[in-house]
């Protein structure tokens, strides 16, 4: 317990600073949120057209109502679990300002993480809660009963936390590439498209044919968006829940270990740029 409270005391100021600096950029933040909402509605209308033209009411066990919830929720989860650590870290490595982190008695990865969590606090209050309430109202209107369950929601929260950490460390590893490459811009774009395709952000993985779907579901990317969204929608049985959550945990551990290894290696051979 002592360790946890020490950790909180040490990194709390980073989260607080993260909240404050998110506030400093609230206008651009709101524009971003608006853009994402428009994107959600576009996706919604595309899927609606797909369902209408197929002439069937369900597609791969998804009703149109499911699909609507999926579009908004997966975006929401994408919001919550998205991490800018690739670009932030790569920039710091490039201009050498990462040394300003290293002269403080903190872990480099934790200090980036806890700062970003501060940004997430803004997202949770300004975007997540309103959209979630909207989704619940929609579900109630379509289904005629309250589909929301507290237990399910708590499991969803656990899953989102895991997927955020997973996504953070995955992004961090891409950021560390900056130690080896002068410009990681291309890799960063590639990573973005890989994540949005394989994580189910564009198309639910359930829509892919058998074997492809099974493969995709084992990849770490599925753990980032698809899994929490499906949990929220109550698509997993208890047994499946245990399985997908342990898979998330497994990938998280893998990425933490990899990123620690790269960092340890880089610290020994690190060549910080700039005078």
């Amino acid at each position: 317990m002592k360790k946890i409270s020490d950790f909180i005391n040490l990194y709390k100021p980073f989260t607080k600073a993260g909240i404050q600096s998110a506030m400093a950029y609230r206008t651009s933040f709101l524009c971003f949120a608006l853009g994402q909402s428009i994107y959600c509605f576009v996706m919604y209308f595309i899927w609606k057209a797909v369902f209408m033209s197929s002439g069937e009411s369900t597609f791969m066990e998804f009703t149109m109502a499911d699909m609507t919830v999926y579009v908004f929720l997966s975006n929401l989860v994408g919001f919550l679990t998205n991490s800018d650590s690739t670009d932030n870290l790569a920039d710091e490595i490039h201009d050498g300002s990462i040394i300003m982190r290293m002269i403080k008695p903190v872990n480099v990865d934790y200090s980036i993480l806890t700062f970003e969590v501060g940004n997430k606090v803004m997202i949770i209050t300004c975007i997540f809660l309103p959209v979630m309430i909207g989704v619940e109202i929609y579900r109630y209107a379509v289904l005629g009963y309250v589909a929301f369950s507290i237990v399910n929601f708590l499991i969803f929260v656990v899953s989102v936390v895991l997927s955020y950490l997973l996504s953070f460390y995955l992004n961090l590893i891409f950021g560390y590439l900056a130690f080896f490459l002068l410009n990681i811009w291309g890799f960063s774009i590639l990573k973005g498209s890989i994540i949005s395709f394989f994580s189910g952000a564009l198309i639910p993985l359930a829509f892919f044919p058998g074997i492809v779907r099974t493969i995709f579901e084992q990849l770490p990317f599925a753990s980032i968006i698809y899994v929490p969204t499906m949990i929220y929608m109550g698509k997993y049985s208890a047994l499946e829940l245990v399985f997908v959550l342990s898979k998330q945990l497994f990938w998280l551990v893998v990425f933490v270990v990899i990123s620690r290894m790269i960092w340890g290696w880089a610290q020994k051979r690190l060549a910080v740029q700039g005078g």
Binding site: N9, L10, P13, K16, A17, Q20, S21, A24, G274
Partner: peptide, 28 residues
């Protein structure tokens, strides 16, 4: 304590006083 003249350890977007309070907690 370290100063690199060409860089800053201050939090760019926060009022200066906030940086000091962050440092106060970080160094306990």
């Amino acid at each position: 304590g370290v100063v690199f003249g060409q860089r800053t350890q201050l939090w760019w977007d926060l009022p200066l006083v906030e940086t000091f309070s962050v440092l106060k907690q970080v160094y306990q």
